[in-house]
Design a protein around this nucleic acid. Structure first.
Lengths: 272, 272
DNA sequence: CTAATAGTGTCTATTAGACAGTATGTT
DNA sequence: AACATACTGTCTAATAGACACTATTAG
C-alpha cells in the first residue's frame, strides 16, 4: 500500500537514496623473521572526503542511486569506479534511515558489503582511497575499533546494547569518533559484526581468497576475523569438504612446504 | 560519499521511499475430533487494495516514509495503524529497489517483518485486511505458495535460483501470480524464507507465542514453519533452557494434561 | 642441530537422532 | 478398554575439542 498524500508531497520530494559500500579484503603484514608466516589483517577501504560536509574525514565509498538504476546497479557502479573490478561479491547489509544522517538533506542509504581479493586490483587506488586494517577490542558493552594504514590511525568507540532478546539484535551507539564522517562508523561496525557472523556459517570468506591458497593462510584469515585461535585438526576437518587439494605446493620459509588448495563449492555451515 | 550532481537532480527528486511490512502470526485450525490438538498454521496479514494501481489485488500493509520520520518510525506507524498494538517485534528484511516495481513513480521499499500473537489483537481488523495461512510446496527449483483464508485462495509460483554459491543466496523470480499486487509476492517469499532460517537459530518464534504455552503447541509451530516433524525428546532437550515450567496445566482433550511453560530468555541457537 | 610451520591420529566430551517406553486424561 | 497426547530413558551416531605426535624445509 503505497499511497501518495498530496499534503506531504513537497516534503517527500526532498528525499534521496544513496548506497554506501563496505569493501572488505585481507592484507598481509610483515613476517617477523624469514621463517614466520606473514601476519594477516582484515581490512576495509575508506575514502578521504575532499568536500564539505565532513571534509577531510574518512568515509565509505558511495553515491546516489539514480532514477534509472536499481540500488544493486548503483552499488556495482560505485564498486567498479573504486576498484575497476567487475563481478565482485556483494550483499545488501542494511538500510540506514536516520533523519539527520546527512546534514545537507534527507538521505537514506542502503549499505552493501563487498569482498575482494586485494591482490586482484590492477590499477592504483585513487589518491583519496586507502586500505585500513581492522582491530577490535571489546570490553563489556563497549567496542573499540581501530583502523590503521601506513600513515594514520583512526579510532572510534561504540556502545553496544542488546535491543532484542529473542534474536540477539544489538543497537550500536557511537560514543566517540573524530575521523569518520556521516554515520559511517555505525555502518562499519554493523558490517564487521555481520562479517563475523557470516564467516561462521557460510563460505563467504572465499570471496577474499585468491584461487590457490594454503590451509594455513586460510586458517589465519578465519582467526583474524573471528578473533580467536582455532585448533588445526578441527579446522582441517571442517574445511576439508569445502576445498580441493591441488598439485601445487609453496615454500614459504624454513619449514615444510604446504600444499595449495582451491575452493570447491558446497554451502554448509562451518562452525556453530 | 554522497555528492549531489545537478545534472541528475530533477530525476532524483521523483524518488520515494516506502516501507512494506510482513506481519506474521500463528493461526489455529480445527481439531478433527475432540481428542486431537488443533492444527496450527503460519499466517500472514494481507490487505486488499481499493484503488488503482492493483485495485482488488492483495498487498502488504505499507506506506511512504515521511520526511520527518525514520524508516523504523514509518514501519511502527503502519504496524500500529493495522494492528493497534505497540512494541511489536519487527526487523528490517530487505530493501527492494527495482526500477518499475511501482507503475506510478520510482518507489524504493524497505520491507520489515513483524511477528505478533494474533490473539492479542483487541480490535477487529479493517474490512480490507485478512489473515492468510501459508502453505509452501517445493519441487526442484520451483516454489508454489498458497495463501488461504476462509473465502479465498491465493496461489503464486516462484522460480528459485542459486545466485551465489559461497553464501547460498537465492534469487526469486515470480513466474505465475494473479492476485498479489506490486512486487509483493517476491517480498513475501523473501520473508518466509528468512523466517525459516531465523526459526532455526534464534528464539524469534517466541514473538508469536502467548505468555503461557505448552511444549506440544510450541513444537507444532516449529514444525509448521520448518515444514518437518521433530522428535519429541530432541525438541524438549533443545528447548529446555529457553523456557521455564510454570505451575499451570491445561486439559485439551482425551489425554494427559500438559504443563504450561513461559519463555525464559537466552539467545542461543536451536538447530543447525 | 633448531626453529617454524605442515599435517595427522586418536581419545574424550558433547550433542543430535532414533525409538521404546511410561503417564494420564476423555470417551 | 481405546485413543490421543504428554513426557522420559537410553542407546547410538555424528561431531567438536584437546593434545600429542610425525613431516619437512631453511639456516
Amino acid at each position: 500500500m503505497e499511497e501518495q498524500k498530496n499534503t506531504t508531497k513537497t516534503r517527500m520530494d526532498n528525499m534521496k537514496l544513496s548506497t554506501d559500500i563496505l569493501i572488505f579484503s585481507v592484507s598481509k603484514g610483515e613476517a617477523k623473521t624469514c621463517r614466520n608466516l606473514s601476519s594477516k589483517y582484515f581490512s576495509i577501504l575508506l575514502i578521504k572526503r575532499t568536500k564539505e560536509p565532513y571534509k577531510e574525514k574518512w568515509c565509505l565509498p558511495g553515491g546516489f542511486v539514480r532514477i534509472d538504476e536499481t540500488i544493486d546497479m548503483a552499488a556495482d557502479r560505485v564498486l567498479e569506479k573504486e576498484t575497476n573490478l567487475h563481478n565482485i561479491y556483494k550483499e545488501q547489509l542494511y538500510t540506514f534511515g536516520e533523519i539527520d544522517r546527512d546534514p545537507r538533506t534527507r538521505v537514506i542509504s542502503t549499505a552493501y558489503m563487498a569482498l575482494i581479493d586485494k591482490e586482484k586490483l590492477t590499477e592504483k587506488l585513487s589518491d583519496e582511497a586507502s586500505w585500513f586494517n581492522i582491530h577490535l577490542q571489546e570490553n563489556n558493552n563497549k567496542i573499540n575499533v581501530t583502523l590503521e594504514n601506513e600513515e594514520e590511525t583512526i579510532n572510534f568507540e561504540i556502545e553496544r546494547t542488546l535491543k532484542e532478546k529473542t534474536t540477539n539484535k544489538y543497537e550500536y551507539k557511537i560514543i566517540q569518533n573524530e575521523k569518520i564522517g556521516f554515520d559511517h562508523a555505525k555502518i562499519i561496525i554493523t558490517g564487521i559484526e555481520r562479517m563475523k557472523n557470516k564467516v561462521k556459517d557460510t563460505d563467504i570468506i572465499f570471496n577474499m581468497m585468491p584461487e590457490y591458497f594454503t590451509l594455513g593462510e586460510l586458517q589465519q584469515i578465519y582467526e583474524v576475523i573471528l578473533d580467536r585461535k582455532l585448533l588445526d585438526p578441527a579446522f582441517r576437518r571442517i574445511i576439508a569438504d569445502k576445498v580441493e587439494r591441488t598439485d601445487k605446493t609453496i615454500k614459504t620459509g624454513g619449514h615444510r612446504p604446504s600444499v595449495m588448495y582451491r575452493y570447491k563449492n558446497k554451502g554448509e555451515e562451518l562452525w556453530k
